[in-house]
Design a protein around this nucleic acid. Structure first.
Lengths: 271, 271
DNA sequence: AGCCGGTCTTCCGTTGAACGGAAGAGGAGG
DNA sequence: CCTCCTCTTCCGTTCAACGGAAGACCGGCT
């Protein structure tokens, strides 16, 4: 399958370019902005946007600017890796939140990045940069380490080969460090990141598995780094993650390290 | 603008037909299923689906079936009427949930239907048919009545003209009944539906307003109909709805009916 | 084994839908 | 008034999209 040399030819690619033009920081765009961002001629943009509009994938606000439509949100909500996972996980996230009263997050891997599916936060919780629907690189977050540690070999090598963006002086900076961290995560069944994105916050993450025992998501708690005791958080995070895994039909319990068995009961199943 | 006679011509419409083929009950589709559902020739479906795949709007599972992709979910999460609203509302939904320990829902209107944006539920709460991302007709739910009561004249007439599907014997069945209910909602500033979707459940809803004082969403609590006292719920639901409105920049408080003023303090702003 | 029903995929000649330049309508600012 | 920006409509050209045909692949049935 040889690589095409032409810039953008198919209608499908053009339509997708238009949809991709919307971002978190610019959710409202005029026609000419869309035309500029996509590089498509104004007339073409006009016609394509018109089609998306009649389908409800885009909407216009009262000033005539375009925005992502509710229909888009609805269809997106059918993504099995989105709301499906979320629905199974939500009760356990709630339990974990009640137990910790700090940010509780659910995330999946997409390429070499983390995508956040859900977060529950207290009003006074420590600041976090990520957002539901937002992305962060895999190497800088606890959920990212968990997801990368259990990703296919090829993905792992790809992430290790890429330059590792440093957010703080505590962000993992070299491939060797990252490789060791991943080995630790696989051995221990959890990941801890202390100040890797922002110095003020520390997070603890554990893997969520599906029927085939694949790691499909990761769960984390984010607490203020100052005075935090990660060792106390590890059991509850792992228990919640295992609860979700069980709800997804994972072959639970059996593959627990012996020393961790008793943790199963830390978080009551029903109460 | 004369009506086109041709069935489906534009690529855009075809692509959207493919996306629309996915539903809550069938989120995994094979190529031929997609072809049958959309009415597109198999070859055409194959090519278009391929484009959506490279863009990440669709994904394939390990058996080769197609599903809505995470990219779709991400872009959908940029819809201002989706996650934007949700983010503003979530803390207030949480407060309301803590206060009532029953289903708490946030919904918007799309055409003549309700679309549910968010729900917080206790594990033992009464059964509800709707789902996050799901739809119900406007006339059968408390949120629907609120949204319809404040919709533009044209939308209201359209909803009144359509046949009213009856879920139970308590569902509003005639346009006259509905018209009176809407007038009540406008006068009182809330709506109550007792067993209109399922006999076992009762819901209380109130409107959420934006900067321009438009009703952009509705908030509701769903409780078991048996032994419920709606009058006790009305103040807390209205207070939470007003809290969200204020967070959205609505000209708050000023337009409250005099008798309701004191309710403002029922739900503490910060606690 | 061989056959049949279903799946999915590749190939390729035809054709009409998509394209985008041109022109004009509207609107804000000077 | 003119200028500069926006958005929208029109329409002749052309090339991407189309979809039939053919074949690969995978069960299940006899």
């Amino acid at each position: 399958m040889p690589r095409r040399t032409a810039p953008i030819v198919s209608v499908g690619a053009r339509l997708q370019a238009i949809l991709e033009a919307f971002t978190e920081t610019s959710p409202l765009l005029t026609l000419s902005e869309l035309s500029r961002r996509t590089g498509l001629p104004l007339t073409t943009t006009h016609r394509l946007v018109g089609e998306l509009l009649t389908g409800g994938l885009l909407e216009r606000d009262e000033l005539g600017r375009y925005r992502v439509g509710l229909r888009m949100w609805e269809i997106g909500s059918l993504a099995p890796r989105g709301l499906g996972l979320r629905a199974s996980a939500l009760p356990f996230l709630g339990d974990l939140f009640d137990a910790t009263r700090n940010h509780v997050q659910l995330a999946v891997r997409e390429g070499t990045e983390v995508v956040y599916l859900e977060r529950i936060s207290a009003r006074d919780a420590v600041h976090v940069v990520s957002r539901v629907g937002g992305r962060l690189p895999l190497h800088a977050t606890a959920v990212g380490l968990v997801l990368l540690a259990h990703a296919e070999h090829e993905v792992r090598e790809q992430a290790l080969a890429a330059p590792l963006r440093r957010f703080t002086e505590r962000t993992l900076g070299t491939a060797a460090q990252l490789r060791r961290a991943l080995a630790d995560v696989r051995r221990d069944g959890y990941a801890v990141c202390n100040g890797a994105v922002e110095l003020v916050s520390l997070s603890v993450a554990a893997p969520v598995r599906d029927q085939e025992d694949n790691v499909v998501a990761a769960l984390s708690v984010v607490v203020p780094a100052k005075g935090a005791n990660p060792r106390a958080l590890i059991p509850v995070v792992r228990a919640a993650a295992r609860g979700i895994s069980r709800a997804l039909g994972a072959p639970s319990g059996l593959r627990l390290p012996v020393a961790a068995r008793h943790e199963t009961h830390v978080l009551p199943e029903h109460g």
